[in-house]
Design a protein around this nucleic acid. Structure first.
Lengths: 352, 352
DNA sequence: TTGAAAGCGGTACCAG
DNA sequence: CTGGTACCGCTTTCAA
């Protein structure tokens, strides 16, 4: 058993008393402010150190009028809290945000996806990055009406009353275009039955991607083959893939929009008796670096977590510093074509 | 270009003035405190809402004397900032910590691994969870002397001056025992040349693991075969594996202590012309759930990110609430034996 | 050069 | 039932 009562922290006044000077002098001495004689300064510093003095962060923040803290929330699967750990995309986004924030002197708070309504408003945040808000997501509006700058996407901002939008910024992709790019590529490689695995959420990414897929199919009179999984996780994703590949008329191309370990996916496809790219062309939307190390390397559609995080932080910081920057930044998805979706020799020949 | 000047936030006094009452009344009305007539309460609430009033979090925290914020720092590779995104272990730990913290009404701040010395002390944290501190890590001592409760491991706490240890707690594993358990298992399965991939850090985990491996080898007069990678990342890890497997006398068992996508590892081993478990028994220390979905499923040594995170948060919260709880919690690693390290029929026969 | 005092924006204790 | 006021711990201005 350990000592239970925490000793009261030593405060500025304590140091002042011990050093026989005033609060002001201590503050100046420790912060390098004022014009004190070196002797006083050193004396105060020594006393402060010997007492183990540490300024109370909250107090100085209240004084400063800011907290230098940015919130990050991943909202894609609001109902299924925290499976995010397994999602390379969110991990990288959170990490990159932390990194970018640090570069600007900010810390990052991981926000919960659920919890007592508005509980996030009790956190001392200067700004918030809301990733993949779902349709009608209350978080964006809550922060904005509370006067806290937010970076989200354009759709989320559009849902907020105009008068509150002032401190709203966005980072976005043309998801539809990205998906079409992949579909066109697969079609050009000879695919006739492209199957898709998506997430069953109303986050912009999935909604627009699925919409684009349906449109694309409709334009060509093709029948969409899509499975939307209710929550992230290896199990769900693999089941979806299995369902698609064991259909009576199996697809000749697969495009996954949910995070799934690329080498595992490849392994699973092979166990189902199909070869890549021979029997099945494959493109994965993933940030897992393992994708380029498999055999064959897997084509990926990436959404630049590093760059978007940096942009989000910059947007937030500009807004906080009163610099009028852009309202948002539009990015283009990063489509990397590799062997998994490249026409094998014999099929290429067949296609002419 | 967007509006650059943020409008000043509306404060408690503003509401009070607008509603024609005092600060106290507003505070009570909004917090459900005091015994106000319903009419007053509603009136104040209406005014507050119409003004878009939100209490200043920093101010109420200063008043409350706590911040309800916990820090998390992953220190294993302090020099190589933020490759953590790719590490399932850290992602899950951070996520689980956030979840556990939320359950206790706390938020979580992701701490940077580097940065201006002591920069972490400027954050308004009630407590900190330092994961895998390296040898002589300053972070633990810094927080402790600042009076901020810390959860780390026993070694890190031992490095701190006794008088500062009061608010130090720990969560730990007997890494040596865990490693021996795996080595014994592999030996029993017939392995004679067990190779290990470890991380070149002084974090307790790697140091003790590598130490245990060397001891274990020495006890048996075996020659250790180990590669320590300088930083996490697919590239380094795969190179290490390749180096080990292409040695003149290749190992007959591989035990990886660094995070590496299990299916990718399997794939790589096969491309090097070895089969698992036929030619090579395989055990991975990883938290990647994909390990159990490969063919063959891969034996894993896990370190319970969920449970340790929960424990860490509890330890911190108990300490903060002045409840005298335990000084720490010792966990046992989770060794899951699967087909990748199970003796294939013919080898079992050969072994008798 | 140093120190007293006024806030930062709330909450909580009293007196009215 | 309500409002004045002290106070959380620090920074900053200003007077001595």
């Amino acid at each position: 058993m350990s000592q239970s009562h925490r000793r009261p922290r030593v405060r500025l006044v304590d140091v002042a008393r011990a050093a026989g000077v005033s609060k002001t002098t201590v503050s100046d001495a420790l912060n390098g402010a004022g014009r004190l004689p070196a002797a006083t300064r050193e004396h105060v510093q020594k006393v402060a150190r010997s007492l183990g003095y540490r300024p109370n962060a909250t107090a100085r923040l209240l004084r400063a009028g800011h907290t230098r803290l940015l919130g990050v929330a991943a909202r894609e699967y609001v109902e299924t809290p925290w499976v995010y750990a397994e999602l390379a995309y969110f991990s990288q986004l959170a990490t990159a945000t932390t990194q970018a924030a640090l570069a600007h002197g900010y810390g990052v708070v991981l926000l919960p996806t659920y919890g007592p309504d508005d509980c996030w408003l009790d956190m001392p945040l200067d700004g918030v990055f809301v990733i993949d808000p779902v349709e009608g997501d209350p978080m964006v509006g809550d922060f904005l009406t509370a006067g806290v700058p937010v970076v989200a996407d354009r759709r989320a901002l559009a849902e907020v009353p105009v008068e509150a939008r002032e401190a709203g910024r966005w980072v976005d992709f043309d998801y539809g275009a990205a998906v079409r790019q992949v579909l066109d590529h697969l079609e050009a490689a000879g695919a006739e039955r492209i199957a898709v695995v998506a997430g069953a959420t109303t986050a912009c990414f999935h909604q627009q991607s699925v919409g684009a897929y349906h449109d694309w199919c409709a334009e060509r009179g093709r029948e969409p083959r899509i499975v939307a999984i209710p929550a992230p996780g290896v199990q769900h994703a693999l089941e979806a893939v299995t369902e698609l590949l064991t259909a009576p008329v199996p697809p000749d191309a697969l495009f996954t929009l949910v995070e799934l370990s690329p080498p595992l996916l490849l392994d699973t496809i092979r166990r189902l008796g199909r070869s890549v790219p021979g029997d099945l062309l494959l493109v994965c939307s993933t940030e897992d670096p393992a994708a380029s190390y498999t055999d064959p390397p897997i084509s990926t559609l990436g959404f630049l977590p590093g760059e978007t995080a940096r942009a989000a932080v910059e947007l937030l910081v500009d807004c906080l510093d009163g610099r009028g920057g852009d309202d948002g930044r539009l990015f283009s998805a990063d489509f990397r074509i590799r062997a998994s979706s490249t026409v094998p020799a014999r099929r290429a020949a067949r296609q002419g």
